[in-house]
């Protein structure tokens, strides 16, 4: 917030200075010229022309500065966005490395614990122990150990999945179709919670080159978050629009919204506001990572008390155009047209 205000006042000051400079540069010769002419022929017409040209100078100065500063401001904003994006990428890469090494180290002891619990369970199923008064307690304990190893395993495997660079399989896909499928997956859950999903898909949406499975994962993650945010009774709006360079998917929920300090960290790995054991804090950062690798951008917009919108911008063709199979090339140029 502070940074933004600073930036704003910087541009305001720059604007004033530029205005003064242009005004003086144009005004000084006018005074000299006008003064000389007035000195020789002191008529009212000359005075009128002098006043008029001063007005013209003022107006054009204002117009020019507004235009120039507007452009500058835009460039500055874009640069700041790119810098934010870069910081996010570095964070993801660094934490990814750390995460995989931790997952490594935890997985092996987990495997031993699971085997030991399994072995105890095997032994408990034998002969006399079954008649022991403590049998059921012991059996339940082994089941609980297994259950919690499973919980740990889910986390380590998700961590590894987060780090693992799955190879992207590009093909021509219809984003509307994938969204439709994803919504269908979640229909039971939304009906149960009385959440209404309103889809506004653009008809004849141009097909894009992307990875179907990975995009589906992104949509499921975001929709799941939207459902969790709403909890019960609410609406999720999904829309697709064709844009210059690709397709924009917007998913809006009528949940409680995200406060500023949370939305700044929302794509950070392991950042979660869900209760312990509910969320790993990897869903959105994985999604962010996937969209980034598919050459797109994901942003969040939220108002506390009103709801949250995720925008996912997907490029029409794959980034760099490398690794494309030859038979696909013809299709791609067709899509571009």
């Amino acid at each position: 917030m502070n940074k933004k205000e600073n930036r704003h006042s910087y541009y305001a000051r720059l604007r004033l200075r530029l205005m003064a400079a242009i005004f003086f540069v144009a005004f000084v010769p006018l005074i000299v010229l006008g003064g000389t002419i007035y000195y020789h022929y002191s008529t009212n017409i000359v005075l009128l022309i002098f006043v008029l040209s001063t007005l013209v100078i003022i107006v054009s100065t204002i117009l020019i500065t507004r235009r120039v500063i507007g452009n500058l401001e835009e460039i500055g904003r874009e640069r700041a966005e790119i810098a934010d994006h870069l910081v996010q990428c570095y964070k993801l890469a660094a934490i990814g490395k750390l995460a995989s090494s931790i997952a490594h180290e935890i997985n092996n002891p987990l495997a031993v614990i699971a085997e030991k619990a399994g072995w105890m369970e095997d032994l408990l199923s034998e002969g006399d122990i079954k008649n022991d008064p403590n049998y059921s307690e012991l059996f339940k304990a082994t089941q609980d150990i297994k259950k919690h190893v499973d919980r740990g395993k889910k986390i380590t495997h998700r961590l590894l999945g987060f780090v693992r660079r799955k190879e992207i399989e590009y093909k021509e896909i219809d984003v509307n179709l994938i969204l439709g499928e994803t919504v269908y997956f979640l229909e039971r859950e939304t009906r149960f919670r009385n959440i209404n999903i309103i889809s506004e898909y653009q008809a004849h949406l141009p097909k894009i080159f992307s990875d179907e499975a990975q995009l589906q994962q992104v949509f499921i993650n975001i929709l799941n978050n939207a459902i969790d945010a709403i909890d019960k009774n609410g609406t999720i709006y999904i829309s697709t629009t064709s844009q210059n360079r690709g397709v924009l998917v917007s998913i809006t929920d009528t949940g409680p919204g995200i406060p500023k300090e949370v939305s700044e960290r929302i794509f950070d790995p392991f950042y979660t506001t869900k209760p312990v054991g509910k969320g790993t804090g990897l869903g959105l950062s994985t999604s962010y990572d996937i969209v980034k690798r598919l050459g797109g951008r994901m942003t969040v917009e939220s108002q506390v008390g009103k709801g949250t919108t995720f925008h996912i911008m997907l490029p029409r063709s794959q980034p760099g155009g490398r690794g494309q199979k030859t038979e696909d090339r013809g299709q791609r140029s067709e899509v571009r047209r």
């Binding site: 092996n108 495997a111 085997e115 030991k116 399994g118 072995w119 095997d122």
Partner: peptide, 14 residues
Amino acid sequence: EEDFRTTLASRLKK
């Protein structure tokens, strides 16, 4: 990993 190996072996033998 010995603990893992021997336990898994016992379970498979069983």
